[in-house]
């Protein structure tokens, strides 16, 4: 990544808003994405992630506010944006009755790639995404992981400077998910800017920059590391016990507990201040429930997220 590319913004969003009748799906959000960055958009279903992406891709017109992608205004010049980006929508974007190669050739046609250039692009991405062996297989018969690879290949044929991936790993097995992220990280290293949405919080660790969206608003942002340490100076305490649920029920309503939730086989409780940790410890011991361990931990993104959502 060159120094010049590092400072220029690929995406500039200012007070972008989208309403559907009276429902505000995206509520005046603003952010910037620098070139070559993997920018993660986190949030539960219905938080406004897909709506934002659709606006940035020029598919959906903003109600108000503005957004610039690769220097083009999405409201004014959606066609210029579309020529230069790749968009992988959530859910299926493939025709079950067309083969892998037919898909790739089709999208070459859409982006005016033909002749030797077409063959080169098709071969290159089939090779890179490990689709060569399945070139004549119908998309309908591909496994979830390969469907996603094909969908990604379709968005990369014209060498876009920026790609939008909406839930690229939903419905994919864990191994394929990891392989898929290796591909995404590789693309970013070559200079492609990536905006990716996910609700798998573990995947968010791959991102340079994260934004948490909830109810159409960005409620937190930063690097994964920053986000984990930032929230209000509180502390996350992990309790391991055989009676997690009973403890959860008892501590949830305590005034100094900001959020509490099950995390794997443990219980994560975030308290407002470091000093409250002792109080929590006392409260738990008063319950008379045997516990295996109780100690402060670095919060996971899930803790951060739960914390942010509960304290608006």
């Amino acid at each position: 990544m060159s120094a010049a590319a590092a400072v220029s913004s690929t995406v500039r969003v200012d007070a972008l808003t989208r309403r559907f009748d009276s429902f505000v799906a995206v509520d005046a959000i603003s952010f910037e994405i620098r070139a070559g960055e993997i920018w993660g958009f986190l949030g539960p279903n219905g938080a406004g992630k897909s709506t934002t992406i659709r606006m940035l891709c020029g598919v959906l017109a903003p109600t108000s506010g503005s957004a610039e992608v690769l220097g083009y205004d999405v409201g004014r010049d959606p066609e210029d944006v579309k020529l230069r980006i790749g968009y992988m929508p959530q859910g299926s974007s493939l025709w079950d009755d067309l083969s892998v190669e037919e898909h790739l050739r089709f999208y070459c046609g859409m982006f005016d790639i033909y002749g030797p250039g077409e063959k080169r692009a098709v071969d290159r991405w089939m090779e890179r995404l490990d689709l060569k062996k399945r070139r004549s297989q119908l998309a309908g018969t591909l496994s979830g992981g390969y469907r996603k690879r094909l969908a990604l290949a379709c968005t990369l044929l014209h060498d876009p400077k920026m790609i939008f991936l909406d839930e690229p790993t939903s419905g994919v097995d864990p191994l394929s998910r990891r392989e898929f992220w290796d591909i995404i990280v590789g693309l970013a290293e070559e200079g492609t800017t990536v905006l990716v949405t996910t609700h798998y919080l573990d995947e968010a660790e791959h991102c340079n920059e994260l934004a948490l969206i909830y109810g159409g608003k960005i409620i937190a942002r930063g690097t994964p590391e920053n986000l984990k340490h930032a929230p209000g100076g509180g502390e996350t305490i992990e309790i391991v016990s055989e009676h997690n649920v009973a403890i959860l029920d008892a501590v949830e309503s305590l005034p100094f507990v900001r959020s509490a939730g099950l995390y794997g086989s443990a219980l994560h409780i975030t308290v407002a201040h470091k000093e409250d940790a002792a109080q929590l410890k006392a409260a738990v011991s008063r319950l008379g429930i045997s516990i295996a361990s109780l100690e402060p931990v670095t919060p996971s993104l899930e803790d951060v997220f739960a914390d942010l959502v509960r304290t608006p």
């Binding site: 020029g58 066609e79 020529l83 980006i85 968009y87 974007s93 982006f111």
Partner: peptide, 8 residues
């Protein structure tokens, strides 16, 4: 949706 986001 995928077609709409292509330049066609």
């Amino acid at each position: 949706e995928q077609l709409i986001v292509s330049p066609i």
